[in-house]
Amino acid sequence: MMRAESLIKRYGGLLAVDQVSLSLDRGTLHAVIGPNGAGKSTLINLLSGETSLSSGWVHFKDHDISAWPAWRRGQAGIGRTFQRTNVMRDMTVLENARLAAQARAQFGLLQTAANAKVVQTALAALHRAGLAEAAGAIASTLSHGQARLLEIAMALAGLPDVLLLDEPLAGLGPEETAPVANLLRDLARDHAVLLVEHDMDVVFAVADVITVMVDGRVLATGAPNEIRTSAIVRDAYLGHSV
């Protein structure tokens, strides 16, 4: 579905992302882990188009999208969430989801914003993310946990093929984590998912493939069991935490 080849992002002398290649397929949850500063968020920004590549290629559904701006990638079916909640704070939850849904739908701009199909798509996304009850709430009044779910719901409302999730569990309490972990597993059934996450328990529980990044490079890629038992990963990153 989506393939990244030899991605490089340079900031001055710093190589934030160095020769990273990976592929994302429908039905697979690909997790990227690594210490802070490993380049995980930069990687997501390179895939979503927020950040421009220094070199490398991004392919999506047989298109070379390396030079596409963020909006065009979003329009093509690449949805993303942000590490720090990034929504239209003064609008309601439903309005946020509706704006996501209408961006993908090829409707005339002069149709009513309450277009039945758009509203239906938005509500379905809210429902799947478990946020249907808060549909009428102003986004800025949501709890942190709900705001994280809104991030996911907005990405979903765009009916994406690929989901790039940047730390969806950030700041969630233990009791909030389990339902979101289940949601991630559920999303991987019909999407190609890239998950950047710090919660190792969740990552090893939900991921099909794990890529370990350190200092902008891919240290190892493999199934959770291979990563867990890999001596290189253990030495370089996981240490005694797993």
């Binding site: 979503s48 927020e50 701006p69 963020a70 909006w71 065009r72 990638r73 979003g74 329009q75 093509a76 993303r80 942000f82 990034n86 929504v87 239209m88 704070r89 003064d90 609008m91 309005e95 509706r98 704006l99 996501a100 209408q102 961006a103 993908r104 409707f107 005339g108 701009l109 002069l110 149709q111 009513t112 914003a113 309450a114 277009n115 758009v118 907005m154 765009g158």
Partner: peptide
């Protein structure tokens, strides 16, 4: 009240997120 009107308000509120959602 149209999609255009709402999209403009979305831009006022959070331009970058609107682009990430696929709005030109």
């Amino acid at each position: 009240s149209t999609m255009l009107g709402h999209a403009l308000q979305g831009i006022r509120s959070n331009e970058n997120r609107m682009a990430a959602l696929g709005h030109n």
